[in-house]
Amino acid sequence: MTSTSTPGLARFNALEEHAARTALHEACAATAWAERLLAARPCATAEDLYAASDAAMAELTAEDLAEAMAGHPPIGRPEPGDPTSAREQRGMAGASDALKAEMLELNLAYQERFGHVFLICATGRTGEQMRDAVKERIGNSPEQEREIVRAELGKINRIRLARLVEALEEEDA
């Protein structure tokens, strides 16, 4: 991640508030997170943007986290027509039918236990790695799991912010 300002970051900083809010909402469904990032603009560097994201994530309440998680489809079932969730869950795309069925069962058991979807930064993970993670995490306490989810959301948000800045940079090209 860059330590200098880029044209994409400059463009993000200059976005009209509504456009910036919309772009941030696509990265994370938590309204409080987006509002904190809007208030942090302008960011001098991409690292400043990521640090603002991390700080905002650390301040989210349980309700804010629930709002953020509601924006994520279950692992193995990306939203139709959503290239972001399909790209992030690529590790499940080539999974066997047996693994997909197992993930469905594990997702349902996890959701029954915790009241929300199993959330993991799936980028770069195989279907087996995601299955193993849900199996490991289902035994956590709700408090432990909430903090793991917070950390996973933070990773996802950093990836999505980097993609947002890159996309804005490509608009200049």
Score class of each variant (00 low, 15 high):
E136S: 13
E145K: 08
L153T: 01
P78T: 00
G71R: 13
I75R: 00
G115T: 11
E112F: 07
F118R: 02
R90T: 00
R113T: 13
A66C: 03
V149F: 14
G127T: 02
Q111H: 04
L99G: 06
I120D: 12
G76A: 10
E67A: 14
C121R: 03
P73F: 07
D64R: 15
Q111W: 05
D97N: 09
S141M: 12
S141I: 14
L99Q: 10
Q144C: 07
K135N: 07
N140D: 14
L65K: 09
G91P: 04
G154S: 14
E79V: 01
R87H: 11
A151H: 13
E112D: 10
G81S: 03
I120R: 06
K155I: 01
Y110G: 02
D97K: 04
E88F: 04
E143R: 06
G124T: 03
D97F: 01
M103E: 04
M130L: 04
R137Y: 14
A122L: 04
M130N: 07
Q89S: 07
S96P: 01
E147L: 15
G127V: 00
H72W: 10
Q144V: 13
E136Y: 09
A95Q: 11
P74G: 06
E147N: 07
Q111A: 06
I75G: 06
A151K: 12
A93M: 08
M69H: 07
P73H: 03
R77H: 12
E63K: 12
P142D: 11
D97L: 02
I148H: 15
A122Q: 05
E152M: 06
A68H: 15
G91S: 10
G127K: 02
A70S: 11
A101Q: 08
H116W: 09
T123Y: 01
A66I: 10
M92K: 06
R77F: 14
L108G: 05
A93G: 08
G115R: 09
A133R: 01
I156A: 11
P74Q: 07
P74F: 08
E143Y: 13
G91E: 13
A66D: 04
G124Y: 01
A93N: 11
C121G: 07
P74A: 09
E128Y: 08
R87K: 05
L106F: 05
E128R: 05
E143N: 07
P73I: 00
G94C: 14
Q111L: 04
E145N: 11
F114Y: 14
V117F: 08
P83F: 02
H116N: 08
V134Y: 11
A68E: 13
R146N: 00
